[in-house]
């Protein structure tokens, strides 16, 4: 199904954080707790969905020469609105730790990249599915990294002030809760993902070679 292929493209084959490395700044800065990662991916989902819809709606009206400035204007307005909404309705400590990363979604390469390569060539429904796919890919990537960092770095999982200590604090590797741990954790997750993808690709190749040699 074509729609499923568009969705899986953003989730697996061109995952923005793990394959094409766009939008890395929030992927490193907000992964210290699972709560922060979840709210950040919610924010990116909101902005990406709305910007894809709007840009797909106006794609025939915008003259081809000035499309990039128009996209930047639309995305900047959307991010301002979403930032003010989140400032009003998010819990205070979460907004403090997300901090300036919400404002920096306006220069996030995922949003502008998707607008430029997909939303200005396809209709609204495909753009919605594509936005959902990419936002889910981003969300899965940073939630996995945040889970890994929080569990091994502090030994506890926390949500809204309550925390559940799974590994005793003396055995937690606090490297992963610090700054350099963000880079190392993301590097390890990227390596794991490309390892899994390589194994799947090799299996497919050997299967295809087998069926080709059997049919001969």
């Amino acid at each position: 199904m074509k729609k499923l292929k568009i969705f899986l493209n953003g989730l697996i084959y061109e995952n923005p954080t793990l394959v094409i490395f766009l939008g890395m700044c929030p992927a490193l800065g907000t992964t210290n707790k699972v709560e922060n990662a979840l709210y950040m991916s919610l924010c990116v989902l909101a902005v990406l969905l709305l910007s894809n819809i709007i840009i797909s709606l106006i794609r025939k009206i915008v003259p081809n020469e000035v499309r990039i400035p128009v996209y930047i204007i639309i995305i900047a307005t959307l991010v301002s609105i979403v930032d003010m909404l989140f400032h009003a309705y998010l819990p205070y400590n979460v907004y403090q730790s997300l901090g300036s990363f919400i404002s920096l979604i306006v220069v996030n390469c995922i949003i502008l990249g998707r607008a430029e390569s997909f939303a200005n060539k396809n209709n609204v429904l495909d753009s919605i599915i594509d936005a959902l796919g990419f936002a889910c890919g981003f969300a899965v990537a940073i939630i996995v990294v945040a889970f890994f960092r929080e569990l091994i770095g502090t030994g506890a999982l926390s949500w809204a002030g309550h925390s559940l200590q799974i590994i005793p604090k003396n055995y937690a590797i606090s490297l992963f809760a610090s700054n350099s741990g963000a880079f190392i954790a993301l590097g390890l997750v990227v390596a794991l993902y490309s390892f899994v993808m390589n194994v799947v690709k090799d299996n497919k190749k050997t299967k295809a070679a087998k069926t080709a040699s059997e049919s001969k």
Binding site: I20, F21, L22, I68, Y71, C109, L112, G113, E116, S117
Partner: peptide, 8 residues
């Protein structure tokens, strides 16, 4: 060679 498709 980067992935930024909006770069002119």
């Amino acid at each position: 060679g980067c992935q930024l498709i909006q770069c002119s």
